[in-house]
């Protein structure tokens, strides 16, 4: 498999009135063609900022990508001209956003919004574009697609809107789709349906996928590999399988205990991680997780751990070995 995306030492900061927010702090990871990567972490840990940074969609001010490289299909997206990055967005790399209700233009028909990526990136006639959109709408199981094309977002249900968003992300047959918590706002059965659908479609087209979520259960089921983020950094990086079987970072272990697992007795009590996610402006010293960590040692208070390899497909950023 060839490398599709490589993120190197990416940092994105927000310069707010209250202080500097290092929303993404020196992270590196890579992704192969057709692979699915899960990005997990509590809300506010920098998952969305990470995703938006790839496509340079960070609002500036107050945000800015301060360093790093995003190598996608052999070019560094961070140094491309505005015109060139526009040619990538929605075409080679597409994004599916979290809130379908607010992420679609309320005064534009679904059809027009759906056709837009192809109007921008493809030299096709209106008829051809329309045909492909109708086809896609059918593939995402939207009934009565032709009439739905002329409807406005407020006439759709949340689940339908998210389906339309997924279709929109796939119209140009991108190499990478980033789905930012695509199902959080929806109820559980629809969530599962949509994820299956997305998985099927990306598999069919050989599209790589980054699924952002705070639900490890979803990751375990749909992702090949996983990055666990905490306070702007990646604290554990592994294959999904290995992570699920042998979580090595105390934070990941905490996360696992706090989400329902499919292979466990449903009656087992869930245990949320104690304490609050940190305030990114006033980060704790040393390892950001130490105030909430039950494994902490003296060193955690003073030194920030870097990612280190623990076995061939598993890296963690932690001073202690939780297995001992």
């Amino acid at each position: 498999m060839s490398k599709l995306l490589e993120v190197k030492n990416l940092s994105t900061h927000f310069f707010t009135d209250d202080g500097l927010v290092k929303a993404v702090d020196n992270i590196s990871y890579s992704l192969n063609e057709g692979e699915t990567l899960g990005l997990v972490g509590e809300s506010g840990c920098g998952k969305s900022v990470n995703a938006l940074s790839l496509l340079r969609l960070i609002p500036n001010p107050p945000g800015k990508i301060v360093s790093g490289k995003v190598i996608f299909e052999d070019q560094n997206l961070l140094t491309l001209s505005e015109d060139d990055i526009c040619r990538i967005r929605g075409n080679r790399m597409a994004m599916i956003f979290q809130e379908p209700m607010t992420s679609l233009n309320p005064v534009m028909t679904i059809g027009r919004q759906l056709m837009e990526p192809m109007e921008i990136h493809r030299q096709m006639t209106r008829g051809e574009i329309q045909e492909r959109c109708l086809d896609l709408l059918k593939r995402v199981h939207i009934p009565e697609a032709p009439t739905r094309m002329n409807a406005y977002p407020h006439q759709f249900s949340g689940g339908m809107l998210q389906r339309a968003m997924i279709a929109m992300g796939l119209t140009c047959n991108p190499r990478l789709v980033i789905a930012d918590e695509p199902t959080t706002a929806l109820d559980v059965t629809i969530q599962a349906q949509l994820l299956e659908l997305m998985k099927d479609l990306t598999r069919e087209f050989g599209t790589a996928l980054i699924i952002i979520t705070h639900n490890l259960g979803i990751v375990a089921r749909y992702a090949d590999r996983v990055n666990v983020m905490y306070a702007g950094r990646i604290v554990e990086k592994s294959t999904a399988m290995d992570l699920y079987k042998n979580p090595r970072h105390p934070y990941t272990i905490g996360l696992m205990a706090s989400v329902p697992r499919l292979d466990q007795d449903m009656k087992k009590k869930l245990k949320p991680i104690e304490g609050q996610p940190p305030d990114l402006i006033h980060l704790p010293s040393g390892c950001s997780f130490h105030p909430r960590c039950s494994y902490r040692v003296e060193r955690c208070l003073n030194e920030t751990p870097e990612l280190k390899t623990v076995n061939e497909n598993h890296e963690i950023a932690c001073w202690v070995d939780v297995r001992t």
């Binding site: 009135d17 969305s48 900022v49 938006l52 960070i58 001010p61 107050p62 809130e99």
Partner: peptide
């Protein structure tokens, strides 16, 4: 008040 909306 404040600047820009937070991205979610």
């Amino acid at each position: 008040r404040g600047q820009g909306k937070k991205i979610e």
